[in-house]
Amino acid sequence: MRNVFTIVRKELRAYFVSPIAYVVLTGFLLLGGWFFFNLLSRFNVLLSIYTQLQQGAEDQLNLNEFVIAPLMHNLSIVLVILVPMITMRAYAEEKKGGTYELLLTSPLRTGEIVLGKFLASFLFICIMLGLTGVYPAVLIAFGNPEIGVLLAGYLGLLLLATSFVAVGLLTSSFTENQIIAAVSGLVATLLLYIIGWPADTAGEVLGPLLRYLSVTEHFAEMVNGLIDTQDLVYFASLILLSLFLTQRSVESLRWR
């Protein structure tokens, strides 16, 4: 456990010493702010139209449905692109820079390396999502969104981002080239995102399967405020499977 902590510290330091962390965090907040601003002004326009049409109609408009949910869906798309860029360096940079030789010849268990790198990226994601908390905070200060639904949505966003982190780390462990790590990570996360699209026309067997495999399906449920064990199991399996495969991939260097 001490070794895991050592790796986490080293990784977090690497994020924040280099400009990566600041570029990614600023970019994410900037895009998030733009979405938030647009959704909010659209909401205001809708509100004024509704109130002109009939008294009390504004009750039908709620912040969760018209601002928070679309904001989270937009952020999830940004995460598809940004997370692989956060994780691409994790293993590839070590392999290229020769430090992989140091890690693998030290008395560290493969699991400790994998877990340490995962936890560091996970913490980074937490910071990233935590900072977007200013947008809902504005809504809570000036409106009355449903807090429960909001929290469920954030949990969904966190699980989605964590799954992408696990997948991105896996693709990084395959190569010493950061570009390849990022592109294959992006393809994998995007695939998880869109795999459910043909579900409606894919037949009775394949359709539900594709829908189950899609991150979007599970994520959307949580954004709507529904936390179902089935969705939690899905995310947990995706994360654990990716971590397991990463462990195998790192370990495979030691196989004959």
């Binding site: 070794n3 050592t6 080293k10 330091r13 820079g97 020769g98 140091l102 030290s106 008395p107």
Partner: peptide
């Protein structure tokens, strides 16, 4: 591996760490 000290062909340095921070990190993982 616990009993080995290894200097690879190219020194395995993390370029964004200071010398002290780097050596502390190595001491810990060893």
């Amino acid at each position: 591996r616990k009993r080995i000290g290894y200097l690879p062909e190219s020194p395995p340095l993390y370029n964004d760490m200071t010398v002290t921070a780097y050596l502390r990190f190595v001491a810990r993982i060893k």
